[in-house]
Structure formats: C-alpha cells, structure tokens
Design a protein around this nucleic acid. Structure first.
Length: 427
RNA sequence: GGAGGGGUGGCAGAGUGGUUGAAUGCGGCGGUCUCGAAAACCGUUUACCCACCUCGUGGGUACGAGGGUUCGAAUCCCUCCUCCUCCGCCA
C-alpha cells in the first residue's frame, strides 16, 4: 500500500509509475473517494463533538438530580442521532472503497530501476562462472532424473496430478541436503531460523500483498484459508501489527517451507521437468530494515543468495528487473538466474526484493527509534529466495552430469549427502 | 467434539452505563538531591484519523474484532476470533 497522502499530493508520480510498470490506477475515482471520505469525516466529527458535549451535560444534570432538564436535553440530542449514523455510513463506504482501490495499486519503482517493458529488457548486472561445454550429449534433468531413478514424474502425477513430481532415493536425499545446506549458510551470517505453518489466513496474505489482487494464484483451503505461495508471507507477517525496537534492526530471518502455487495462466510454460510445479521447496530470507539502510540490505541479500550458488559451483548471472517486470510489492528487485543446459539459457532461481514501506504499511509493521525521531515509522521489508530447492537440484543434475549418466555431487553438498560423491542409477 | 472461565495502556492489575484515554503498582523518560550512583521525592509517559494560523492547537476514534441498545458503553445484548481449565478423541 502506498502512502495515501503521498498519492494525493503526487498523482503525476503515480501516473508515471503505473505507466512504466504496466500497471494502472483510477486517478479520478481516487480523488472522488478521497474527497468524499474527508468531507464525511469533517461533518460527522463536528456532530460527534456536539453530541459528546451534550452527553456530558446530561450526565451532570442527572448527577445533580435535575431530571426534567436532562430529559429535555436528551430529546434534543436524539435529533442528530440518525444524521450521525448516516454520515458515518457514508464515511465507512468511501473509506472502504478507497482502501480497496489503494490495495490494488502496486508499489512505485525506485528511481534506480531501469525503464523497460518486460523481462526481455532486464539488464544484466554481473555474471559468475562459465557454462560448461559438454563433449557428450548432455541430457535434460527431466530425462536424467528418471534414468537415475531419483525423479519420478509419472508417479507424481498419479499421486497428486499434473505439475507434481516424486523424488526417490538420492533425489529425496538431495532435497533434504539442499534445505539444510542453505539454512546453515544463512545462519552463518546471522539469519535466525524459523519454522512457520504453511496454511494461512486472509490478513496474513493481505499484509504481503498477495490478496486481494492475486487470489487466483493461490491454493484455497476450505473454508477460508490458503496454502502459502512462499515463506516470505509468513516471515514478513511474524511482526504484523507490531512496533519494533530500532536498536534491533535489521532483523534477518530465514525459513524453509514448501510453496504452493496454482500456476493459473502459465499453462504451456515450462511444462517439462521440475521447473514450474504446484508444490516446491524453498528456503527464504526476509529482512526488516531501517529506511536509510534498506538498499544496502538488498545488496547484501543478493550477495548471500549468490554465495550459495558460488559454493555449489553453479554458473549464474544477476539481472535487475526493469520497471515493466517488477512484482506488485517490490520497489526494486534483482533476479538470480542459474545456467540450465537444457534451456541453453539462464533460468530464475532467486528473486530478491526491497518492498520499501509497501508491505509494512499493509501489515502495520513499524519501529521506534527515540534517538532519531519521535513516534513511530514504518520499517522496510525485504525478501529473497535463498534458494529455490527444486530448481537448484535441476541445475545440479544438469551441470554436474557425466558422460556415463552419473551425476557428481558438488563438493560442498557431499557432507549433507552422507558422504555420497556420485549419484548412480538406482533400481 | 462437550462443559466452564478469561481477553483493559510496555508489563501487572482496578474499573459493571455518565466530567474514564482509563485508578494503582512496576518499567521507561525528565528533574531535585549527590563528588558520582543508589534510595527518596516531584513531574512525565499511547496509537491512528481529520482540520487549521502546521516544530503547535483543536476535534474525532480506539479497553480482542465486528454489529446492536442508549443522549452517552471498557461497562448491557448478539456474532466471530483467541487464550486458559476439565472431559472426550488423537499423530
């Protein structure tokens, strides 16, 4: 959610921001509702002030035993009762509509975000590692996985449906190994580990911006709950409706959770393999930072995600999402894309965003810092994958495959794999 | 699933319709005292919204959430959420 005062005073900035990120907002309706709300407030508060004063008088008259005068005063005040109720309804209506309108407006891109229409215009920031040249016919993970007996697509579909898969043996082991590896790495640099529920409610999803606009992307659990699409939702909402101590910032949180996505509208995209599925595992990083520090925290979060790819020896590059590709809640976002031989291209494996005060305002997360300012301010929230587990496994299988159809386990992962150095075909 | 009892300011804890944003205690902040500190004493202590003569003043709202009764509700009624105790069931 944007600051309503800022929107009121800078509508041209919003126009420009929406145009640059392929968003839209109803400017005329905003001012119509804003005006309606404020004039209703002015009127209703005037009447309330009069009523409060009169009620106080009635109380005094009653106390002094002047019953008749009190009754007369009561009758007089009663006249405004319906009027106040009607105005109050008017105010509530305008306010509800205004909040609804505001909650559908995406964040404003940071001035440092490059202008662009879509993901084809995301500039590369840097590149690490060199994609391997294979001197044999390299396989895609959707072929190699089943050949090794570590990924079973057919049974995944039988157990749950399309876009689900089953891991077995060393595949299952590697999933578990990657989760532990990632969390251990984050812990080394000060991230606190959490273990949240994966079913959640409306308010939590509203806080991070999934609701109300993106309900169709979520798995619904009857009657009114949802499966989380990312641990970001839970980690960020840990402090919903809280006022944090400025001395404790930044807070660095991490968690592993499965993530659930309806993938409505992505039919036909990434249909092969484990790249785009309804349920996948991810280790997530979330930070709560002071405004003046949040951009630095974004850079260090990206560095932490990169560190994991580097230790695993997976080639990748970093791109800055241009205005047209920016997610709803993000003010600035970097994507890490890992090299996938089967795509002969880089594929997103992490997305690190600075949401600025956008989520904090929705989720009401503030902080206090008496030495810096009076009262409270909204914190800045950041989130980033560190990393998507399934896509990491796909990248390892493909980049570390050998001519004989085996897969070498990245050195850093061997201890997490119970000492297994090479994955060979299983029965 | 059944029965009962709670949810008040940073914390503890009063308050069962009328000058209650809310006693009291603790904590926090400022001050007096002191070489300094402690103790003691004095003062102070929320958030959001609206308006204006915009480092301030005035007004409104907020006692789990929402609705109702009333001139007026923390106090009465309804619904929901949540916590606790007991019983049942259970990984």
């Amino acid at each position: 959610m944007l600051d309503i005062k800022y929107v009121r005073e800078n509508p041209d900035v919003i126009d420009e921001a929406m145009a640059s990120r392929n968003g839209s907002w109803d400017r005329d309706r905003f001012f119509e509702l804003d005006e309606a709300r404020r004039s209703a407030i002015a009127e209703v508060e005037k009447l309330q002030a009069a009523r409060n004063a009169a009620s106080k008088q009635i109380g005094l008259l009653m106390r002094d035993g002047k019953t008749e005068e009190a009754e007369a005063a009561k009758a007089e005040v009663a006249n405004d009762k319906e009027r106040i109720a009607a105005l109050e309804d008017e105010r509530a209506q305008a306010e509800g509509d205004l909040t609804d309108l505001m909650s559908h407006i995406p964040n404003i891109p940071d001035p440092s975000v490059p202008k662009g229409k879509d993901d084809t215009e995301n500039p590369e920031v840097r590149r690490w590692g060199t994609p391997r040249e294979f001197d044999f016919d390299a396989k895609a993970h959707w072929d190699l996985g089943p050949d090794l007996g570590i990924i079973d697509f057919e049974r995944g579909v039988k157990l749950a449906g399309s876009r689900f898969y089953l891991l077995g043996g060393m595949g299952a082991r590697m999933e578990r190994a990657l989760i532990n590896f990632f969390i251990d790495e984050h812990s080394k640099v000060g991230f606190k580990e959490w273990w949240p529920p994966v079913i959640t409610n409306h308010d939590t999803l509203y806080g991070t911006g999934q609701l109300p606009k993106f309900e169709e992307d979520l798995f619904h659990v009857e009657p009114d709950m949802y499966l989380i699409p990312t641990a970001e939702v839970m980690l960020t909402n840990i402090h919903r409706d809280e006022t944090l101590d400025g001395d404790k910032l930044p807070l660095l949180y991490t968690a592993f959770t499965p993530c659930f996505r309806e993938e409505a509208g992505s039919a036909g995209r990434d249909t092969r393999g484990i790249i785009r599925v309804h349920e996948f595992d991810k280790v997530e990083m979330v930070k709560f930072a002071k405004p003046e520090d949040s951009m630095n925290q974004l850079e260090s979060m990206v560095a932490e995600a990169e560190h994991n790819l580097q230790v695993l020896g997976l080639p990748y590059h970093v791109v800055t999402l241009c205005t047209g590709d920016l997610g709803f809640s993000a003010r600035k976002c970097y994507d890490l894309e890992v090299w996938l031989p089967s795509y002969n291209n880089y594929k997103e494996i992490s997305s690190c965003s600075n949401c600025w005060d956008f989520q904090a305002r929705r989720a009401n997360i503030r902080y206090r810092d008496p030495s810096e300012f009076k009262g409270t301010r909204y914190v800045h929230t950041l989130n980033g994958s560190g990393l998507a587990v399934g896509r990491t496994m796909a990248a390892i299988i493909e980049n570390y495959q050998n001519a004989d159809g085996t897969v070498t386990v990245p050195e850093a992962l061997v201890p997490y794999m119970g000492g297994v150095e090479v994955i060979k075909p299983e029965d």
